[in-house]
């Protein structure tokens, strides 16, 4: 499913002030909120993550424990606040790395054309044919699960997709006459990428970052849910859902709340990128 059906829109109008519809504003607000939590979460958490604070298991919501307690009687709010770091941080880092590798190589392929482009494109086309969850499972089977392994695995998985989109965007710009003028002037590859290509694909590329970030959050939380992601005693939101799954029958906040956290984060990002003006959009769908 991570095969990007790229529908590339290039608009060469200048950077103007971004005008967002309400839905986009809501999305941006949610993202801002969660990023803030990821940074300050551990400092504002009312309890220690591991501390047993409730005698009840799957305790209900009340003033002292606003989001109730989990299957061991720990504070769910604190665990979500601290878990934000793993969910957002790991996915963000993986996305960043994927875009750094895929994006750079994609632009390089577009500007170099010819054999380099051919070789890189074929290589990433082949890589993309391994379903993302498959590659993740294989690597985790071989290396075990740790945060660096998870981040680098997710990064490698999303590199081919980033490569494809960045290359498609850069190829469109690369065909424009101003790049041809720069080439005729004698400019080198580095200048062409930095000055001519990059500033003109910045908008779509940010959208692509958002999209890929959503994929990464979904993948990492799914892995955690399967027990193959972040390992105890650390816990991201996916692990929180997994460890409290027994509370599902009773509708315990311990399982509902982390799930809601994931949903608000990913829907927030989707809302924002769905509502960006046309010239920012990079993809139809994933």
């Amino acid at each position: 499913m991570k095969n990007d059906q790229t529908i590339t829109v290039i608009d060469t109008s200048p950077p103007r002030r971004l005008r967002l519809p309400v839905a986009g504003m809501v999305g941006a607000g949610i993202i801002g909120f969660w990023i803030l939590i990821a940074i300050i979460g551990p400092y504002i958490a009312p309890h220690e993550v591991g501390a047993l604070v409730d005698d009840d298991l799957f305790g209900h919501m009340r003033w002292s424990l606003p989001l109730g307690s989990d299957y061991l009687g720990r504070d769910v709010l604190s665990r979500i606040l601290v878990g934000a770091r793993y969910s957002i941080g790991a996915a963000g880092a993986a996305t960043f790395l994927a875009i750094l590798m895929g994006g750079t190589l994609g632009m390089l392929a577009a500007v170099s054309r010819g054999a380099i482009d051919m070789a890189l494109s074929r290589f990433f086309d082949a890589l993309i044919s391994i379903p993302s969850k498959m590659s993740a499972l294989v690597v985790i089977a071989a290396l075990g699960s740790s945060i660096p392994v998870l981040i680098s695995t997710a990064a490698v998985i999303y590199t081919p997709g980033a490569f494809r989109i960045w290359r498609a965007l850069a190829v469109n710009v690369n065909e424009l006459d101003f790049v041809e003028v720069a080439r005729a002037r004698g400019e080198g590859t580095h200048y062409l990428i930095r000055e001519e290509i990059l500033p003109n694909i910045a908008g779509p590329v940010l959208t692509d970052f958002g999209l890929r970030f959503v994929f990464a959050v979904l993948l990492l939380s799914s892995l955690s849910f399967l027990g193959l992601g972040v390992q105890p005693p650390n816990a991201d939101w996916g692990s929180l859902v997994r460890e409290n799954i027994d509370g599902l029958a009773g509708g315990a906040p311990a399982v509902v709340m982390p799930a809601a956290a994931i949903a608000t984060l990913t829907i927030g990002v989707s809302l924002l990128i769905d509502n960006l003006p046309g010239r920012w959009s990079s993809t139809g769908e994933h």
């Binding site: 979904l218 399982v255 994931i262 994933h286």
Partner: peptide, 22 residues
């Protein structure tokens, strides 16, 4: 559809279990 895509599959499964099975 955007909401469904943005949410992990395990959540949709869980939701359906709560509604239809539980």
């Amino acid at each position: 559809t955007m909401s469904i895509i943005s949410v992990p599959e395990f959540m949709i499964a869980t939701l359906l279990v709560i509604v239809f099975a539980v």
